[in-house]
Nucleic acid binder design. Structure first.
Lengths: 347, 347
DNA sequence: TCCACGTTTTAAAACGTTTGCAATCGGACT
DNA sequence: AGTCCGATTGCAAACGTTTTAAAACGTGGA
């Protein structure tokens, strides 16, 4: 507002608006001399184009939309901050900005997404945390609107652009790591909700076990609803206090792994002497909880930066075949895992 | 894009565009019957107004801008996520959205802010993490552009709209808490950078000491550059291994307090038996680091929600006298503080 | 001198709203 | 019946850009 307008700038230069517009966009149809004169004057007077006007005619907003996922009142991890920072970093390289919408109390995430798309305020959207059957994806695909998802669906028949952490690979790696340390009896603390990442990670673990082909390997799984703290603790304890206790327990994600460590030390177990624990995500608390949780870095920020690039190319090129990408999580080896206890090894 | 336009909607209803526009905005000059008919049809056909066009004529974008503060490559705490979530929640109640700009590698935060303001894409901005002499504030004040700052300046002569945590009060409270537990010898691990919050917190501590008027109270301060891990550890150890060690050490913020706890247990001290530690911020790791850090909840999310409301009223009412607000941090009493050690008490 | 042609510039339409002002429509009043 | 008035509605300008189509301008060849 109150900024210099194109018309005013043109007036000062005694040139038509059209010419100025073209000159600033670097159109070679405009004489080089004029272009330089205009660019110079624009800088001189501090001309900043009015985006609304540009958007109105060009149909492009220069925004990428993001609907903040609804979340519990208490629990905000670093995911969002990491993700948005990465997105911003990725987008700025392409001269785009980020537009964030929040879901009001009474409304659905889908309806907000619809508004973002149809108000023309975004050229594409990023859809985080893909669930099992996601109505957001269905809508976007139907509308043929550019988007990239963070996460994928189990049913690979639905084809769309996505980027995901290769968490099955990570869980395979976790198994191999522990197996090589002598562990044979494994525990897994999982969630009972039907999230895609749960299936992927469990599958990664089971595949690794199958690949090893060792009939002595045992896997005990205990699950609880995702945000139910009490049930989670109970699930953890069902493993810890089992008649034959696993020597290594893996948490589906760090919060679960940290609970395993807490309950284990409450039960008088020493980590990693009596029990190895491995998590996934590498949340900040993982480094501070003694003795330091071995986990996998999900590389959220990198992923988001990558997603930004993918989305921009989707917006510009509208590729026919979907682009997908897997990001390999990185093992962060801390002190919560170790060789299988001697006592068990003798049995 | 491709959405229904106002003209099309008007055509279907056989009414002029102007009337439809007025009807949708609830203008009472339009007959109630017509208004209902239009609203009904709009819902029916799924009409979504084109924001660019609206913005162009009204001059208002419906956006609040936020320039993501430049941050180190490694260190992202939950601040950003909390803050943005809170902002989003607060804004959505007023029908506004959030527009996030990132600072590209070579450019300054100020230049990005300038673009946000002058491109007309935001009706107001939120400026986080106020420093000592902030050029962003100078620019915004000069331009008379609506904004609310998170944080304030020491020099209270500069008057603008801000909201800040009342961290001096929190540090006073921390002192009183520890004093009442018998502590007389205090340590403070601070930073050497000239941030406003550092001064406020140190002042809060010193004021509380002065208020108590007890000549036996000792305060030892050790500082290090903010992100210099090595220097921080050294500063912490200078307190821990001092000839006369403080019985209670306060960290300017949680990361420092956690370092204090780490180094203390490395030195064989038991917390809180041998040493009390208190922090500020209540980052997630504070709960997991044994034995649980006593700290203050900065209520970032609440603050951001509040800021959203303030900014909206600033945008709409343009108040002449600046609005300011202090948010009282909330003590989160965990297990890292306790009575002064017996051995010391006897001296 | 005139024409044709390539280069450069201009004029004007379009994007989809909002809004000031004029026009229309009924009915009430004279 | 003619006026006037309030309640509705329609018309058209305006917002600041981009872009199409046409105009202006030189320049060199005939």
């Amino acid at each position: 507002m109150a900024g210099l307008t194109l018309r005013e700038l043109a007036a000062r230069l005694d040139i038509s608006v059209g010419t100025v517009s073209r000159a600033l966009s670097g159109d070679t149809a405009i004489a080089l001399k004029t272009r330089e004169r205009v660019t110079e004057a624009a800088k001189q007077y501090g001309y900043v184009p009015n985006m609304a006007a540009r958007q109105l005619v060009s149909g492009r907003s220069g925004f990428v939309g993001f609907v903040i996922p609804v979340r519990g009142p208490n629990f905000i991890d670093s995911y969002l901050g990491e993700f948005l920072t990465g997105l911003g970093e990725g987008l700025v390289e392409h001269g785009m900005d980020l537009f964030i919408a929040t879901v009001p109390a009474g409304r659905s995430e889908l309806s907000v997404l619809r508004h973002v798309v149809e108000s023309g305020r975004a050229d594409g959207v990023v859809v985080p945390r893909i669930g099992e059957a996601d109505e957001r994806l269905a809508y976007l695909l139907d509308r043929n609107f550019p988007f990239v998802a963070h996460g994928r669906m189990l049913d690979s028949s639905a084809s769309f652009n996505w980027l995901d952490a290769d968490s099955n690979a990570a869980f395979s790696e976790a198994f191999d790591l522990l197996y090589d340390l002598g562990h044979r009896h494994f525990g897994l603390v999982s969630i009972s909700d039907p999230m895609t990442f749960r299936h992927l990670r469990e599958r990664g673990l089971r595949d690794a076990i199958a690949r090893r082909g060792d009939p002595n390997v045992i896997l005990d799984v205990a699950s609880a609803p995702r945000f139910d703290r009490g049930a989670t603790v109970a699930a953890v304890n069902s493993l810890i206090h089992a008649e034959r206790r696993p020597t290594a327990i893996i948490g589906l994600f760090d919060e679960l792994a940290l609970t395993i460590m807490e309950e284990a030390s409450r039960a008088g177990l020493s980590i990693p002497r009596d029990l190895s624990v491995v998590g996934f995500d590498n949340i900040t608390a993982a480094a501070y909880a003694p003795p330091g949780l071995t986990t996998f870095e999900a590389r959220t920020r990198d992923s988001a930066r990558e997603i930004a690039g993918m989305l921009v190319s989707v917006i510009e090129k509208k590729p026919v075949t979907p682009v997908t990408k897997l990001i390999a999580p990185k093992l962060v080896a801390r002190a919560s895992h170790g060789p299988v206890p001697e006592t068990v090894r003798k049995l």
